[in-house]
Amino acid sequence: MNAILKINGQEKTFEGGLPETLAVLLDNLHIDQATVVAEIDGRIIERKDFFRTVLAQGQAIELIRFVGGG
């Protein structure tokens, strides 16, 4: 079975298996941990917990950041 996560609404397949933690996923995607906030299946994950948040097959992950706005 392929390792799949739904990231920001899009399914992403990981050929080499699921990234072990949220922190590893962000590294793989070249995203600076300090600039994002994450939600897994609707639950907010604090930044300090990224390194110990273990990922599971099929989870819906939202990666969110600040942008310009009024």
Partner: peptide, 16 residues
């Protein structure tokens, strides 16, 4: 004021 949006996972994201 600032807004929140999804990260673009395919491209570089500015850190405003």
């Amino acid at each position: 004021t600032v807004a929140l949006r999804r990260v673009d996972i395919e491209n570089e994201n500015d850190n405003m």
